[in-house]
Simulated scan of single mutants.
Amino acid sequence: MANLLANPEFWKAVASLAWPAVALTVFVKLQPVIRALLTRENLTLKIAGMEVTVMQAAESLGAQVADLQEKVAGLQSVGQPNDVVTTIISGSNKKSLLWVDDFPSNNVFIIEKFRQDGIEVTLSIETQEALELLRSRKFDAVITDLGRKELGVDHPMAGLELIRKVRAHGLQTPILVFAGHRGLQHSDQLKAEGATSVTNSGVDVMAFAEKYLGKA
């Protein structure tokens, strides 16, 4: 089992499963083993081109699974068809996405899933670099966090600054703010400045990608 968990191909396979319904079963069954293993050694692996520890990978997958469970429970409680899960596991044509986040490793499974679906994902860790990328080439969509540390300085509203500058340059690229509870607190302001949508849910990220990067 230790050899399996240390194998990057295992984690790529988890990311590419009937996402994430089967991943839920895998994660729940393996979670005790993962935690026991990590008390003995600190394994690292590469997912979506990023070095992450097995614990980081497990926590990232666990957060996304919990998010899915909450979304599915909400849909079932009101008797609506589970369109969210259908959206998640459907394919995508090759499109380009700019993801701006100073800790992209927090979202390795979503990024890996996008790339396996043929979406070209470009990562940026700060606002100025992201703006230069947007000026130099066309992106079909942008995902940004809200607060970032840039050049050693905390910028709690960096995502808002990025949105303002993108819109000031006349770019109408769809922008999703993917942040925590604080992002939701500033949702109205972010949308007023030009954000297409604001969420703290990985499920909503997948739905956003399906809408703007999915099937033509």
Rank of each mutant, 00 (worst) to 15 (best):
A2N: 14
N7Q: 06
P8N: 10
F10C: 05
W11M: 04
S16F: 10
W19M: 09
P20R: 15
P20M: 10
P20D: 07
V22I: 12
V22S: 13
L24N: 13
L24M: 11
V26S: 09
V26R: 09
V28W: 06
L30E: 10
P32R: 12
L38F: 07
E41G: 09
E51M: 08
V52W: 02
M55Y: 07
M55T: 12
S60V: 05
G62D: 05
Q64I: 04
V65G: 05
D67T: 05
Q69V: 15
E70R: 14
K71A: 14
S77T: 06
N82R: 09
I88D: 00
N93C: 02
D102E: 03
D102A: 02
S105N: 13
N106I: 01
N106P: 01
V108C: 11
I111K: 02
E112F: 06
K113P: 02
F114K: 06
V121Q: 01
L123T: 02
S124I: 00
S124E: 00
E126F: 09
L134E: 00
S136D: 11
R137N: 06
F139Q: 04
A141K: 06
A141R: 03
V142Q: 03
L146V: 05
K149P: 00
K149R: 13
E150V: 01
E150G: 00
L151M: 10
L151P: 00
G152H: 03
H155D: 06
G159S: 06
E161I: 03
L162G: 03
R167C: 04
R167K: 11
A168H: 01
A168W: 00
G170W: 00
L171C: 02
L171K: 14
Q172D: 14
P174F: 02
P174D: 04
G180R: 10
G180P: 05
H181A: 13
G183I: 07
Q189R: 11
Q189W: 04
L190A: 08
L190N: 09
N200Q: 14
G202F: 09
V203Y: 11
D204Q: 15
D204H: 15
F208H: 10
K211G: 07
Y212I: 01
L213D: 03
G214H: 07
A216N: 15
